[in-house]
């Protein structure tokens, strides 16, 4: 069925719309393909922005603005994303509702300007901390819209940095957006001008920092109960469990449909959040399966997350379909499953 509010938009437009509907007020940024359009579309819509001298400044701009209660965000990609981790790490340490849309491009370094899934570890663990950040991986335009809006809600609710981790293909794809409008997120100044607060980003004693990090770990685990999301497809009687995220996750879902049609008991675990990972759902599906296939446009970044989080008593063997820096189509996934 085709509804009336369907729009023909690019991924970048969908992300900006998600931010606007969540009530975003300000953007700091430094252009880099394929995330530039998120910034330029925001500017063209007449919104407030500041183009800084680099991604480090853009990131710290967001840190300052959110402390004042402004729903600010940024976008970046590839080498820009590396620089931005400086500010994201501070946001993690100071528990700031930092929001970023990241468009993965090929790496290392400037790599390509187009596509990869090689910024997974950087997004999840790119700081000198313990990876206390929310990382969302949208699989299509609707989800890119919805998760961008959600990033604002959850960043402000849990006070962890929130990264919408997408890629150049999805940001540049023009397709159909057909979503109900997201609610605005609630924000408030994290400190008043009149108040004096000793708000630390550096600690005198190791034990103080230890306590702080352990508290963050507790809060993160508590947040994970609600914030960890995954889509499960046909996992009830699953024998071969596919694990894939982002647009590769969308391709894997289609592959499950095709393979099921041919009587093969395939299912999919698609993390919608890479951090925190929906661990219990993963364990449950993985324990049933005879084989787990992790599929990604990288040499094992998702696989590392999955193996790390999987309960140690689960001994299901792994297989991998890994194509660094290029896309993975439905047909390739179907053929790979046939091949094993």
């Amino acid at each position: 069925m085709i509804s009336n509010n369907r729009q023909f938009v690019t991924g970048a437009e969908a992300a900006v719309q998600g931010a606007l509907d969540a009530g975003a007020e300000m953007m700091y940024g430094y252009p880099i393909t394929p995330a530039t359009e998120v910034f330029t579309i925001w500017i063209k819509k007449g919104q407030k922005y500041l183009q800084t001298e680099d991604e480090i400044a853009a990131g710290f701009g967001v840190c300052g603005a959110v402390i004042a209660g402004q729903k600010a965000f940024t976008c970046s990609a590839g080498p820009g994303h590396i620089l931005m981790q400086d500010a994201i790490s501070m946001a993690e340490g100071m528990r700031l509702p930092f929001v970023a849309v990241i468009g993965q491009r090929g790496g290392p370094s400037s790599g390509t300007v187009i596509y990869s899934q090689q910024e997974v570890i950087l997004s999840c663990f790119g700081g000198n901390g313990e990876g206390h950040r929310l990382v969302y991986s949208p699989s299509n335009l609707d989800e890119l819209y919805r998760l961008t809006a959600l990033a604002f809600h959850e960043a402000w609710q849990y006070k962890f940095p929130a990264i919408v981790l997408t890629d150049g293909y999805l940001l540049k794809t023009k397709g159909i957006l057909d979503e109900t409008k997201a609610e605005p997120a609630k924000a408030h100044p994290l400190i008043n001008e009149e108040t004096f607060r000793h708000w630390r980003n550096i600690y005198n004693f190791e034990e103080e920092l230890r306590d702080e990090v352990l508290k963050m770990e507790n809060d993160f685990a508590a947040a994970a109960k609600e914030a960890a999301r995954a889509e499960e497809v046909q996992t009830d009687d699953v024998e071969i469990l596919l694990v894939a995220h982002g647009i590769v996750g969308a391709a894997a879902k289609e592959a499950v449909d095709i393979l099921r049609g041919q009587g093969i008991k395939v299912g999919l675990f698609r993390p919608i959040t890479l951090r925190p990972l929906a661990k219990e759902k993963l364990d449950k599906a993985a324990a049933k399966a005879k084989k787990i296939i992790v599929i990604e446009s990288s040499l094992g970044q998702l696989a590392r997350l999955v193996r790390d989080q999987l309960a140690p008593e689960i001994s299901t063997p792994f297989d991998y379909l890994q194509k660094p820096a290029v896309g993975i189509e439905v047909e390739e996934i179907v053929n790979f499953v046939y091949g094993i």
Partner: peptide, 9 residues
């Protein structure tokens, strides 16, 4: 619905 933006055929 179109699930994946690229194709080889």
């Amino acid at each position: 619905d179109i699930v994946y933006p690229k194709f080889s055929k």
